[in-house]
Design a protein around this nucleic acid. Structure first.
Length: 358
DNA sequence: AAGGCGGGGTG
DNA sequence: CACCCAGCCTT
């Protein structure tokens, strides 16, 4: 039997017989819900996305409810999930479908692909799951399974690699049942052909798996080297005046676009009180204003993919308002409805930050 | 073609 | 600690 045929029949029979994963969007035919689930699951583990998916489809059961919701509410629901441009595109696309397509979700692959936030993978997933069209998905699971079984050593994070794997995945696809096949290969990658410590000893593909036979399981798939981490230091001024706090919305092309934060002084290090009094930004911000530094929080940090953020929060009381238009003020209970990055949400959740007791 | 974008799990 | 996860967009 040819390897391709063996691959397909073994995979499908594994999926049929074994315990594939249980997920609320499995077998779902509503393209809207499939779309929401796939956006949430981009670069996100099923386990982590599950609760978010349930909250989303409960609050926004269809395109219209999502398209007409307040954007801040949608962002708040996304809080903590990361990659916030996904949320921006989710909103944009919902409005587009609601307003331009009369609420009708596109059904052709090319039209699905054209939606903001929808790339190759997501378009294939929606086309196959919702409309049973013959498009093979290509995600981290599929790369890994194909790389190992066929012994492919082309780096997966290159243009050449993506082209090669796309073509291979498409030829392997069971055109008669693309939804089932796509589901099967991703489940297989997640349950058996895992990144670390895969279950080769109980793998039904073992006897024809090149990686297993040549002892290359641990080196496949090949990834080209990526950049290393940069360190950044965020000094947050939690400035309080008249029972309100100054808040900034991040709009630059940087981390946390569209989320909120306190007044940020980014520097080459964390600043102590003496540093602060010499800091240009700080001095110009508080020029002519009496203030009292009330509390320095412990330093805290957050690891992102390519940067390590170390932060501290400095609580400051001022005696008259800031003369800048860059920030706006919010009362403690208003802070609750704003979307913050994890780092700040954690700070606000601490018991020793008595924002609400003021 | 390369770089940037979160947060969390895992060995 | 490094690696990776149901990827996508911009430059």
């Amino acid at each position: 039997m040819k390897n391709e045929k063996f691959f397909l029949t073994s995979l499908l029979s594994w999926h049929l017989n074994e315990n594939s994963r249980e997920m609320p969007w499995k077998g779902e035919k509503d393209p809207y819900k499939i779309w929401v689930s796939e956006i949430i699951l981009q670069q996100t583990r099923v386990q982590q996305g599950l609760a978010y998916y349930n909250r989303f489809v409960h609050q926004f059961p269809n395109v219209k409810t999502l398209a007409t919701a307040s954007e801040q509410k949608v962002y708040k629901l996304w809080e903590g999930l990361g990659y916030y441009s996904r949320c921006k595109n989710l909103i944009r696309t919902a409005k587009f479908i609601h307003e331009e397509l009369d609420g009708h979700f596109p059904e052709e692959y090319e039209d699905i692909l054209a939606l903001k936030g929808v790339g190759n993978y997501t378009a294939s997933a929606i086309a196959s799951f919702a409309f049973n069209q013959p498009y093979a998905v290509l995600d981290g699971n599929v790369f890994r399974v194909l790389s190992r079984f066929f012994g492919i050593e082309i780096p997966v994070n290159t243009t050449q690699g993506k082209k090669y794997y796309t073509a291979l995945a498409q030829t392997l696809l069971d055109k008669k049942n693309p939804a089932l096949y796509n589901q099967a290969i991703m489940d297989f990658g997640a349950v058996i052909c895992k990144p670390a410590l895969p279950e080769c000893l109980q793998c039904p593909l073992q006897k024809k798996c090149i990686a297993f036979l040549k002892n290359k399981v641990s080196i496949l798939p090949v990834n080209n080297a990526v950049n290393k981490q940069k360190k950044r230091f965020f000094n947050y001024l939690v400035v309080e005046y008249n029972e309100t706090f100054y808040i900034n919305k991040r709009i630059e092309k940087d981390i946390w676009e569209n989320l909120y934060e306190f007044i940020l002084i980014e520097a080459n290090s964390l600043l102590n009180e003496k540093d602060l009094l010499k800091n240009e930004e700080f001095v110009s911000l508080l020029k002519g204003i009496n203030f009292k530094v009330k509390l320095f929080s412990e330093k805290t940090s957050q690891k992102l993919t390519h940067q390590l953020i170390t932060a501290k929060f400095i609580r400051i009381e001022i005696e008259k308002p800031l003369h800048t238009v860059k920030y706006f003020s919010a009362k403690p209970n208003e802070l609750k409805s704003l979307p913050f990055p994890k780092l700040i949400a954690s700070y606000l959740a601490e018991k020793n930050v008595p924002l609400s007791s003021i």
